[in-house]
Design a protein around this nucleic acid. Structure first.
Length: 331
DNA sequence: CATACGTGGTT
DNA sequence: TAACCAAGTAT
């Protein structure tokens, strides 16, 4: 309320935000989803795995994969001992399969350099493969209860609207946003953890990108964007190209490799619609290796050069490996 | 700072 | 239907 000089004068903003802190945290207690990685008995490893899986991936798609994953590899050591092929298969179609490889490498680092326990320091987490600023903070906060500013896409959007009055945050994370998130963090450790979790959930459930449910928002009275009349976003979001891209070809190649139980001959993997037909004609019979997704791969309107390039990328990333009979997931 | 990197549901 | 979007990271 007041910002007179005193012990707390170093962050005069804090008093002004207490009402917002209280309202959002109270809303969370009432409206939060019941997710397994939030259960009281959750382990740091469970939290870490969930955070990696949730990178750019919706909760509903992560849930079933996470459950299987934690049953199969309940501790970092368990995953560390698995083969990359098994890890990539278990990742299923979560997308960005390089995350699976990095999580595997992180598990090995945890085993080799941290005694098999997920490290709790932000700096140590940050040093693990596949873990950046967001995930390091998220694990430190949600698994270890520390006080750090978590800055994900949800929190960026909520804070952009609530305090900056903009419909959407900028394309990339700015220093100003990080500073704002840090300034908004409640003083007390438990409160800061609750705040991070609550704002993220608010962004996921109410303050959504497309059609925000402002009538359900606990801080709609304080929202700079709403007060300004909900002006539209300024810059047009660049679309994520897909059709005809290398990424699409990589995805189709990965689908085949995941389904294959044996190495897939290179010519089979790199065939296009016409050459596949030619192969069948010449051999007078369907290919010996029947693999799910091969037909879809052949049907892609991608030139041979692009298929070669996509496969080379997979090999370079360690998502595919060459063997006697052809290509397979890395053993 | 921009770009590559999967996948599938929603609008 | 095409475009948008989802708890980012690495280069």
């Amino acid at each position: 309320m007041n910002s007179s000089a005193g012990p707390a004068a170093e962050d005069p903003q804090q008093d002004d935000h207490q009402g917002i802190h209280r309202a959002v945290i109270e809303w969370y207690a009432r409206a939060a989803r019941d997710l397994p990685w939030r259960a009281p008995e959750r382990t740091p490893w469970q939290v870490l795995v969930s955070e990696i899986m949730l990178q750019q991936t919706p909760v509903v798609r992560v849930l079933p994969v996470w459950r299987r994953w934690m049953q199969q590899w309940p501790e970092p050591r368990d995953l560390a001992e698995a083969s990359p092929a098994d890890v990539v298969r278990a990742w299923d179609r979560l997308g960005y399969p390089r995350r699976a490889l990095r999580l595997h490498a992180a598990a090995q680092s945890i085993r080799d350099e941290h005694g098999g326990r997920v490290p709790s320091r932000h700096s140590e987490l940050l040093a693990l493969p596949g873990i950046g600023a967001y995930t390091a903070a998220a694990v430190a906060v949600f698994a270890f209860g520390q006080r750090h500013a978590v800055v994900d896409t949800n929190i960026r959007r909520v804070e952009a609207r609530l305090f900056t009055g903009r419909a959407l945050p900028s394309r990339s994370l700015t220093a100003a946003e990080t500073r704002l998130a840090e300034e908004l963090l409640p003083r007390g450790v438990p409160e800061s953890v609750a705040w991070n979790q609550a704002v993220m959930e608010l962004g996921a459930l109410v303050c959504t990108a497309r059609s925000p449910r402002c009538s359900d928002c606990p801080v709609r009275e304080d929202c700079a964007w709403l007060v300004a009349g909900s002006p539209p976003a300024e810059d047009v979001p660049r679309g994520q190209a897909w059709h005809g891209t290398d990424r699409q070809v990589r995805g189709a190649l990965m689908a085949v490799l995941r389904a294959a139980e044996e190495p897939v001959p290179r010519r089979l993997l790199l065939a296009d619609a016409s050459s596949a037909e030619q192969l069948a004609t010449e051999h007078g019979a369907p290919p010996q290796v029947v693999v799910d997704g091969l037909t879809a791969l052949w049907r892609l309107p991608a030139p041979a050069e692009q298929r070669e390039r996509a496969l080379a990328g997979l090999l370079a990333d360690g998502l595919a490996a060459e063997s006697d009979g052809g290509l397979s997931l890395p053993v």
